[in-house]
Simulated scan of single mutants.
Amino acid sequence: MITVNDLRVHPLDQVHRLIEPGPVILVSTEWQGTPNVMTNGFNMMVRHAPPLIACTIGPWDHSYTALVETGECVISIPTADMAATVVDIGNCSGADVDKFGKFGLTAVAGEAVRAPLIAECWANIECRVADTRLADSHSLFLLEAVRAWTDPSQEAPRLFHHRGDGTFTLDGPVVDLKAHMTKWQYLV
């Protein structure tokens, strides 16, 4: 029988590496006529309908003020072939750099929010801030998806996931367990 003496203590400041929250995303905003984009590795789905997404964006991020002031953003989901660019986007500030220009991103007007979609990404989700009660204390925003888009030319995109230490995992083969979703058939 295994006891705690057989296990290794994992540092609490690295717990986020054990429970990876979701794919790396790009969050675009527009404030005072200027578009910006940031890389985000701390996000998760909260609810199916209406779709709610939790996203950590702190006051240290240039996008924070735009999100607070406008109450809207676009979550763009890049594919694995964009990984190096996405990491580079996260290593500079929109306060100093026009990231759309520097990284060759194509801003596309959405229908529900002023923040731009990113044409190079597989999916774009137009969002409005639904709840900011945890923004001050935990830098956590709840975002309601109000419109979503996918690129039909990318049928089987490979996404990448943040491991918290400069390494990433890539999506692998899809495992189809729809037949086992007996309680949740309405989601299949």
Rank of each mutant, 00 (worst) to 15 (best):
S63W: 03
A109M: 06
C55K: 08
A109I: 09
A148W: 07
R114Y: 00
A83L: 14
A109D: 15
H48Q: 12
G41E: 09
E111N: 09
G90C: 08
L134C: 11
C127Q: 10
G71E: 05
F42W: 14
I57V: 13
K99Y: 02
N40T: 12
E111S: 11
L105V: 08
A66Q: 06
R158I: 14
R47P: 00
S63C: 12
L67Y: 02
G166H: 08
W149C: 02
W31P: 00
S139T: 13
A83Q: 15
T56D: 09
M45C: 10
F160T: 05
D165P: 01
G58R: 09
P152V: 08
E69G: 01
P157R: 07
N36T: 09
V46H: 06
A54S: 12
G41D: 08
H48N: 13
R133K: 14
E30I: 15
F42M: 13
E69V: 04
M44Q: 13
S76M: 08
A156Y: 05
C73A: 15
C55H: 03
P51N: 09
W31Q: 11
K102W: 00
L52S: 09
S93E: 05
F42G: 02
N124D: 11
W31V: 10
T167I: 11
E111W: 00
R158Y: 01
N43I: 13
R147N: 12
M44E: 10
T150C: 05
A83I: 12
P152C: 06
P59M: 14
M44C: 15
T65H: 12
H62W: 14
D131H: 03
D131M: 03
K102R: 13
H162M: 07
E72Q: 13
I118P: 02
P78L: 10
A66S: 12
G166R: 08
Q32T: 07
E111Q: 12
P78H: 04
I75P: 08
A80C: 05
G90A: 08
N40H: 08
F141H: 08
L142Q: 12
P35V: 05
F141Q: 07
A66I: 01
A109C: 10
G104Q: 08
R163V: 06
P116D: 04
T106C: 08
T167Q: 13
V86K: 00
C55R: 03
A130G: 10
A156W: 00
M82V: 03
A145G: 12
V113G: 06
A156F: 04
H48D: 15
C73G: 05
A115I: 10
G94S: 04
D131S: 07
I57S: 01
L140Q: 09
A130P: 03
P157W: 10
R163A: 07
L159P: 01
P59L: 12
N124G: 12
V68D: 10
Q154R: 14
R133D: 15
W31T: 06
N40A: 15
M44Y: 05
I75F: 06
A112I: 06
L142T: 14
A66G: 07
V113H: 03
P157K: 06
